[in-house]
């Protein structure tokens, strides 16, 4: 099977769905690039080249460059979705939600409920997240917990190229608004990705490995780190389950609890800032619903409560690492077994 990058996987998903369904359109700033400029058409193909080539195949009518106007085009995507298109809008960096969030959380997310179930809003917002690019505080955040908080939105966070293609096709075919998070440091990751179209259902966690000692739940890029940590820990005879929820809304809490009941130990790894992030949410649900099964305190591995810094020395310290995950797992293994009440 051919190996493809995360970038190619998303591109292929968009292309195949645009071929399959004429109501699918893509829009965003520099989604083709060079609009109105004297140089090449499709000059950028998206800020990091993810949508390259779509213009040539589908034309300006379905590949829509926009002015730098996030409120206008994210709102337009919502309005288009409510009236019959399936738009995929590129909100370049999720940090830019600050200038258009109303159109997402007050409009698109709530149409269906406010209108008594008579509307559907099948839109996808693609957006880049995450630290590691030396892009500093306004281009590096992991804001998926904010979107996960909003009823009416779905949130997908693929952890690999295979996951990205299947989740993107599902997102486009889904009748609800989906926020699709792409980690900017993962675009060149490669793995085997089928040429054919396929879907990965939302709300079904992926077990990357199953072990008896500790459950590690990780999100997005952190899945890769958690897997690496688990491989190292296996050599120390610590046998970990690594669970990727794939979507934080809906969240497959059932699989997480099932695993925690088996291992009795939980470590949650989340690149989002630590207050009210996915780690706190998942930990709270585990504590509430599987307290009796826990043999040790839950550990959360998240960055500190600070903005993402610029200097490489500081940013590297900010991002959860394989070492920090390993240390958290060792600490829950070392915790004295809780006595039954």
């Amino acid at each position: 099977m051919p190996k493809k990058s995360f970038r190619q996987a998303v591109n292929e998903a968009l292309r195949q769905e645009m071929e399959r369904d004429p109501s699918v359109v893509v829009m965003g700033e520099d989604i083709a690039g060079g609009m109105g400029a004297p140089g090449e058409d499709d000059a950028w193909g998206g800020p990091l080249g993810v949508t390259k080539g779509l213009l040539a195949q589908f034309g300006r009518g379905r590949v829509l460059d926009t002015p730098i106007s996030e409120s206008a085009f994210i709102g337009a995507a919502a309005g288009a979705a409510a009236t019959g298109l399936r738009p995929v809008a590129d909100l370049m960096f999720v940090d830019f939600m600050g200038v258009c969030f109303d159109q997402i959380f007050n409009q698109a997310a709530k149409f269906r409920y406010m209108f008594g179930g008579k509307a559907k809003t099948p839109m996808v917002i693609r957006t880049m997240y995450g630290a590691g690019f030396r892009a500093a505080s306004q281009h590096s955040q992991c804001l998926y917990p904010v979107f996960t908080h909003i009823p009416g939105l779905k949130v997908a966070i693929p952890s690999s190229p295979y996951e990205a293609k299947g989740l993107m096709i599902q997102a486009i075919r889904d009748d609800d608004p989906v926020i699709f998070f792409e980690h900017k440091a993962m675009y060149d990751d490669e793995e085997e990705v089928p040429d054919e179209a396929y879907t990965i259902p939302f709300g079904e966690a992926n077990f990357l490995r199953e072990g008896e000692d500790v459950t590690i739940v990780a999100i997005g890029r952190m899945v890769k780190f958690a897997r690496e940590a688990a491989d190292q820990l296996a050599r120390e005879k610590i046998d970990c389950t690594v669970l990727d929820p794939r979507t934080t809304s809906p969240l497959d809490i059932g699989s997480i609890l099932e695993s925690v009941r088996e291992t009795g130990r939980l470590v949650v790894v989340d690149e989002a800032n630590p207050r009210c992030n996915m780690a706190t949410d998942i930990s709270a649900q585990a504590a509430e619903q599987a307290f009796d099964a826990l043999k040790a305190p839950i550990r959360m591995v998240s960055p500190p409560h600070v903005p993402v810094p610029f200097s490489p020395a500081l940013e590297d310290e900010f991002i959860p690492s394989v070492e920090k995950i390993g240390a958290a797992v060792r600490s829950v293994m070392a915790a004295p077994a809780r006595r039954a009440a």
Binding site: P194, Y198, I200
Partner: peptide, 17 residues
């Protein structure tokens, strides 16, 4: 094996499978 299971799941997810 984990990969055998994963391979079957992936095959089933293909459109039309």
């Amino acid at each position: 094996g984990h990969e055998m299971v994963e391979a079957v799941l992936r095959a089933k997810r293909l459109d039309g499978a």
